[in-house]
Design a protein around this nucleic acid. Sequence first.
DNA 1: CTGAAAGCGCTTACAG
DNA 2: CTGAAAGCGCTTACAG
Lengths: 340, 340
Amino acid sequence: MSTDQSRRLPPTLEEVAAAAGVSRSTVSRVVNGSTRVSPEVLTAVTAAIDELKYIPNRAARSLANRQSMAIALVVPEETMRFFGDPYFASIVHGITKGIEPSDYVLTLQLASPAGPSEKTVRYLLGSNVDGALVVSHHSGDRFLASLGQTLPVVFGGRPLRLDGQTSYFVDVDNAAAAEMGTQYLIDQGRQRIASIAGAADMPAGIDRADGWKRAMLAAGQRTDLLAHGDFSMASGARCMRELLDRAPDLDAVFVASDLMANGAVAVLRERGRTIPGDVAVVGFDDSSAATGGEVELTTVSQPSVEMGEAMAVMLLALLRGEDPEPVNIMPTRMVVRDSA
Amino acid sequence: MSTDQSRRLPPTLEEVAAAAGVSRSTVSRVVNGSTRVSPEVLTAVTAAIDELKYIPNRAARSLANRQSMAIALVVPEETMRFFGDPYFASIVHGITKGIEPSDYVLTLQLASPAGPSEKTVRYLLGSNVDGALVVSHHSGDRFLASLGQTLPVVFGGRPLRLDGQTSYFVDVDNAAAAEMGTQYLIDQGRQRIASIAGAADMPAGIDRADGWKRAMLAAGQRTDLLAHGDFSMASGARCMRELLDRAPDLDAVFVASDLMANGAVAVLRERGRTIPGDVAVVGFDDSSAATGGEVELTTVSQPSVEMGEAMAVMLLALLRGEDPEPVNIMPTRMVVRDSA
DNA sequence: CTGAAAGCGCTTACAG
DNA sequence: CTGAAAGCGCTTACAG
């Protein structure tokens, strides 16, 4: 009851070595999965580890081998927006799934679209993490764009301003996907198709607008009905109002995210339009927002969870010193529900 | 161009000491803000630090003083639910605000309501973090409930199963707040007031239901119209349908979260009820969901951002070895908008 | 296959 | 107020 006061500290490599009757080097080898260990020794050491419930000290390990075993999850987005979009939920979910089997832990760096704080910069540059995962990226942020020169970095979505450097990222073919979504509307016989695009300083905002234009031009339709939101529901509503004012006769709208589509749907109903009768709506993402709103959205589905997981896997490969394919473009598909 | 190949490593304390012409001990003292340093030496060392752009190595520091300078942000919630609720966005926003001025970094531990993974347990127990912040807590999770015995922990919301241990948490008086929200409805002359409560395995789910009951009983109204959701929008819709089926004549509903209230509102409209004409709705949180939905919600407002910040501040005090008040109950107030 | 030794970059008593 | 020295718990060549 009163004797174990001095034994409160967690066991060290040294103690495991003593218990197993071998040197610290040997214990270190088995802990790190080296093959150059005899079976008997392996057994003895493993037993000692279990016995003592030995857990390697991260700090000591990091100091010795210059690896932090930590990965920064960088979120260059307003906290509120980040948490408000179920698309990010899926991405993060995938990332944690991908990281889980590894020994790495995730460190959270909430930044603003304009750029990270000085603390974050110091942290990222101070060899506190072995790599970084950047979900979403705004063109204004030059720091993140160049972070890859210092650290292995994988982006969620093609980063802007490549500066010739190869960047690692997983994405979908946003233009082609948007083209597909728009073509679906065209095939339904819609004549006046508007589009609500995402943030103009993000590739996903730009490329999806381009895809819509491409499909429209190919079909010989006009491309004047375009409004740029910021991927939020409120911006979707705002854009929808604007488009409706400009063209009361529009009969369809291709929206660059489900969340914005939900905002658009609310406005359409408010204005007495039936969906998809009067106006057909196609969203993008196929996130939980597609099925959680007033009407089940027909949408361009991207495999968000898998994309997050792919980001983690790619970074892990980089961290292992491997040379993974820097660009992973994942497939999209139309998911037809009630809105179009 | 080819000479600085060998100088790629970040500067060490040693180098700063050499540059300033003092010992490492002295540099360490100024880095750590010790007062026992002469002005001249302070100036010289500071200059050397700036000159070399010295950033202390975290691993070395941690190893030497047994502090990780990391705080675990533990999220015992399905990723999707966590990201789907703007309430959490505010809490996390507040936490990052509170942590920002400190030298601590946030480590993300996504767990399930049932309990954390083995990796997370090892991480939390392996002295990899100096403290933990637990946002939301389910009764099924005994591990987190007892984590406080090993580590300084601050909970967001009163944890269940105290086991006599004092726990640190910041919360609102959920019962009183719910009572206030319900009383508002009673004062409006509503005669048949239902309630959609939160998860029954969480204090916020239980206490808000109790507050509703208390107000109803005091007003001599029946307390039979209660349904338990899980704080999600979908569950709010489900509960609303159930309550409407049971009591088509209900004329008001007190809902334990804005997100669930939005789900309820959608169902009410779907069933042709006007709001607040036929049915008045009062939500809870005053999160962005209160103003982002179809109708602007009248709601019980809790200072979520400040609560997150208070959690961080409390933990930081604990980490400094101080003895903060273990319970911080923050004020709530009615915010009247369009739904009641 | 295994061990002795040096070293990773700090902090912390201990002297002075 | 300042410095020399030991130590934090690992890993990593280097021998053997």
